[in-house]
Amino acid sequence: MMTRIPILKLRECLIVSIQWELDDQTALAFQEDLLAKLHTTAARGVVLDLTPIDFIDSFIAKVLGDVINMSGLMGAKVVITGIQPAVAITLIELGIRLENVVTALDLENGLEKLERELED
């Protein structure tokens, strides 16, 4: 039983909202799906909303970090939105800083930030 995460396109951006706890397979499948979608749509930006996610371990963090770097290679900027306080704290305590990641409070802010980044 594997769920696929839906990826929506809005003008130049892709919008992804992760609604369920990520297991390893889903996370890896998502990585492939997103890159494939970037390829076919030539989108310039991605907003990845994690609001419902209540924990991220080092594996998922690595997958997310990889996705962001890979998207960057394909010419797309990624903004992560909605990281919960508890998740942020655990990530920091785990020692995962996600240093070059652009973040925003929620989807709306994320889209704004992405548009601004794309203008620069």
Partner: peptide
């Protein structure tokens, strides 16, 4: 609380992995 829940869940995930 939610923060400690996340800490515990994450720790278990790391150990299990």
């Amino acid at each position: 609380g939610t923060v400690d829940q996340a800490r515990i869940t994450t720790a278990i995930s790391e150990l299990a992995r």
